[in-house]
Write a protein that binds this DNA or RNA. Structure first.
Lengths: 209, 209
DNA sequence: ATCTTATTGTGATTAGAGGCACATGCGTGC
DNA sequence: GCACGCATGTGCCTCTAATCACAATAAGAT
């Protein structure tokens, strides 16, 4: 193992591995080979071994990987051994759905603040008990509650402005559900969840065969 | 332009271009250079020209691209000049939010059927007026309404079963929101919308810097 | 009509990721 | 204690995708 730049694709796959490993634990499997894990994740076995090699040696030759240990190690690599504090901006249908969704609650992702520009919503509470605040309090509340990641669920035209405010409030990572490309300064990581793009991919596939 | 295999990444970018072009139209811009469009989409200018070159010649040398024409052409390439009929499976919080979301309604994506296993929901209607049906009627209803794409919004453990049923019902493309890898036969295209993976990417980024 | 300027379209180059195949080394059985 | 089998870890090769750089060419000015 050397100190190389780690491909983004590797990190994405590590996340996939954790899910497969969690399933294996539920099935009381204690040891897994790269071959078996590869089947579960739909990737090449050598790929898995190489992905792990970036971070050290985790397997036992002739045996495979101990499921529980490997899961623990990968979670540690990804930073999932701790809790993360999130803020949601835009609590329409989608935003509300996300706050309660298993994808967030499953791991240590916890919403500690919510914002919306709609005066009818401000001051009310989400089903989780979270108070909805106006956007102009983002700076104070995010700093106060030490928000680390922001989730944007507004219409596309407001997304960039919200992103700017989040950055201003000290948030270093943004998950963007709005169908638009967000510009952010260096040091801020933006990930887009773009199902409109995925849909277009499907449409293209069905069109051309 | 030759008959080459077109990278999936190219299709994804084409989708990005359509969005930027739609924004430009709103701003009454009539001509755009690959340089300007590249800035809006966060890609390399040569990348745009090369992506387009797979499908023909769309620009005017020394001038750029006519926004309206280019948008029309790309939409045609992606298959967005027509309407697509979708079914949603799993109308919990997330499913309901998606049915009403701008990402679907913006283009010609139209939900024509909804399914859920919850007996309390079956027979009721969504806010859009769409009737919720039991999963065992998927085969008949999807064929009857000529559903082309399926959207899976169930918990992870049911996703594979639902995918099988969709395939059985003649659906050729699946958009999967459940946090699990779905196996599908050849000829069926599956796209995953996986925000749990995106979150993990952010966590890794914040952890390592 | 010719020259200038701007921007496309594309061949050549570079970078990077994925897969193969084998040597390494751990566990087990004799 | 030794040999054998099996799965990892990794150097090397291949293939694909992104970027560069330049020739082609259209519009407008002189």
């Amino acid at each position: 193992m050397k100190f190389l730049k780690i491909p983004a694709a590797t990190i994405t796959r590590l996340s996939l591995y954790t899910r497969a490993l969690e399933t294996l634990i539920k099935e009381q499997v204690t040891v897994v080979s790269s071959k078996r894990l590869a089947e579960l994740c739909g990737v090449n076995p050598a790929q898995i071994r190489k992905d792990l090699a970036y971070f050290g040696q985790f397997g036992v030759r002739g045996v495979g990987y101990y499921v529980k240990e490997l899961l623990f190690d990968i979670k540690k690599i990804l930073g999932l051994h701790r809790e993360w504090k999130l803020a949601i901006v835009g609590v329409g249908n989608l935003g509300c759905a996300l706050v309660a969704h298993e994808n967030f609650t499953r791991q240590g992702y916890r919403f500690v603040a919510a914002f919306d520009a709609d005066p009818m919503k401000i001051g009310r509470k989400l089903v989780t008990g979270l108070l909805i605040n106006p956007p102009n309090e983002m700076h104070n509340i995010c700093r106060d509650k030490q928000v680390e990641m922001g989730v944007i669920c507004t219409p596309a035209e407001f997304a960039q402005d919200i992103a700017n405010r989040l950055v201003d409030a000290g948030v270093k990572a943004i998950l963007n559900f709005a169908p638009t490309q967000i510009q952010a300064p260096d040091g801020i990581k933006v990930e887009n969840v773009d199902f409109s793009v995925k849909l277009d991919n499907l449409a293209y596939y069905l069109t051309t065969g």
